[in-house]
Amino acid sequence: MPSDGNSLDGLPLLDVDDEVFLALADQSRRMALYYLRIRDRVDVETLADVVTGWSAAGRHGTATRADRDRLLTALRVRHLPLLAAAGLVDYDRTAGTVAVERLAEPVRTLLDAAYAWEGDRNAVD
């Protein structure tokens, strides 16, 4: 655990189980959660557009239709089932929609810290 993680000070990380850490270890899943937190239920296709564009913006900048289609498949078969298993999202496979679950305080703090960290890392120098 980092000793200089100011924003994580006092966070009862022991209350966060490994499934949540595993869920947050992937950028696509973090981006999906950031977006879902500010929206009501979102359809998976729209979520794929957003996560594709947002992830690319911090890297090479552009993404194509093929990138987006690959991510849509990855969301359906891997990321969303994993987020659902960790109790972070409610994924309705039949309707093809997803919504964020009510998150426990330590998880909210962890996500806020990750969001700020990814913002700083990409800050214009």
């Binding site: 950031y34 500010i38 913006a57």
Partner: peptide, 25 residues
């Protein structure tokens, strides 16, 4: 998008279908 996060981006769609995206920067 919430403030102070990863950089913003633009999505181009036609007929509701994703065509491409590019970072705002």
């Amino acid at each position: 998008l919430p403030p102070n996060g990863p950089p913003g981006f633009v999505v181009f769609r036609e007929g509701g279908e994703f065509l491409a995206s590019i970072g705002l920067r």
